[in-house]
Deep mutational scan, measured.
Amino acid sequence: RLTVMSLQESGLKVNQPASFAIRLNGAKGKIDAKVHSPSGAVEECHVSELEPDKYAVRFIPHENGVHTIDVKFNGSHVVGSPFKVRVGEP
């Protein structure tokens, strides 16, 4: 089962990169992540390998409000996905 680490749920800033990590815990497959902005825009997140069992997911929010992040592994949502994060002040 995958572990999502260091996902900041609030206090993110517009046009500043945000990232979190995913540990695969021995699982093999493909991570896919997309961020949905409050206006409905959908953007791919950048996924990069940090070490053999750990990946970083990076995105840049372009507007204030609550964004939804879909994180999928081999086509299925990971536990807790979709995640909600707040950009800007509430």
Rank of each mutant, 00 (worst) to 15 (best):
P17Y: 08
I60V: 12
E63C: 08
L12N: 06
S10C: 03
I69A: 09
T68D: 09
N74M: 10
V66D: 14
R23Y: 02
G65L: 02
V35L: 15
A41R: 14
G65F: 02
N64Y: 07
L50Y: 04
V71I: 11
N64I: 13
E9P: 02
G88M: 04
A56V: 13
T3W: 07
V71N: 00
E51H: 13
I22Q: 00
V42C: 12
E89R: 10
M5T: 15
H77E: 13
G88W: 01
K34G: 11
N74G: 11
A41V: 14
P61R: 00
I31P: 06
G40C: 14
E89C: 09
D53Q: 05
R58Y: 13
R58E: 08
A41K: 12
K84D: 13
F59H: 06
P52I: 14
Y55T: 12
H46A: 12
F83S: 06
P90Q: 15
K72S: 07
K28F: 04
K54M: 04
S81R: 01
L2R: 02
K34R: 09
K13W: 02
R1N: 11
S6I: 05
V14Q: 15
H36G: 15
G11W: 02
Y55N: 12
K34Y: 03
P52W: 14
H62Q: 08
R1V: 15
V35T: 05
Q8N: 08
V79G: 11
V66I: 13
V35F: 15
A21T: 15
H62Y: 09
F59M: 11
V87N: 01
K34V: 10
D32P: 00
R58A: 07
K30H: 12
A18I: 06
G75V: 04
L12T: 00
D70K: 08
A21V: 09
H36T: 03
V78H: 05
S76D: 15
D53Y: 09
L24P: 01
V85F: 03
A41M: 04
M5E: 07
S39D: 05
K28Y: 01
Q8F: 12
F20S: 00
N64D: 12
L7I: 08
E9G: 06
S48E: 12
K13S: 14
K54A: 03
G26C: 04
S19L: 03
D53F: 07
E49I: 09
V14W: 01
Y55I: 10
P61H: 00
L7Q: 03
G26D: 06
V85H: 09
S39E: 11
N74Y: 08
F20P: 00
A41W: 03
H67D: 00
S10W: 01
D70L: 09
R86D: 14
V87I: 07
E44C: 07
H67L: 10
K13F: 06
K28N: 04
G88T: 09
R58N: 15
Q8S: 10
A56Y: 13
H77N: 09
E63M: 13
V42I: 08
E9A: 03
Q8K: 13
K28W: 07
V85Y: 15
L2D: 08
A56H: 14
K34S: 14
D70Y: 09
V66L: 10
K84L: 11
L50D: 15
F73R: 03
A33S: 10
G29V: 02
G40K: 06
V14M: 02
L7G: 04
V85T: 14
G65R: 01
D32G: 05
A33F: 12
E43P: 01
F20A: 00
K30M: 14
G11M: 12
K30L: 09
G40I: 02
Q8V: 10
I69P: 00
E49V: 09
E9C: 01
P82I: 02
G29H: 06
H36I: 14
T3F: 08
K84T: 05
I60A: 03
L12G: 02
E43K: 04
K13P: 04
S19P: 01
V78Q: 06
K72E: 10
A27E: 14
S81K: 05
S76N: 07
T68H: 11
A21N: 14
V4T: 12
S6M: 15
H36Y: 08
G26Y: 01
F20L: 10
Q16A: 05
A41F: 11
A33N: 04
V78L: 09
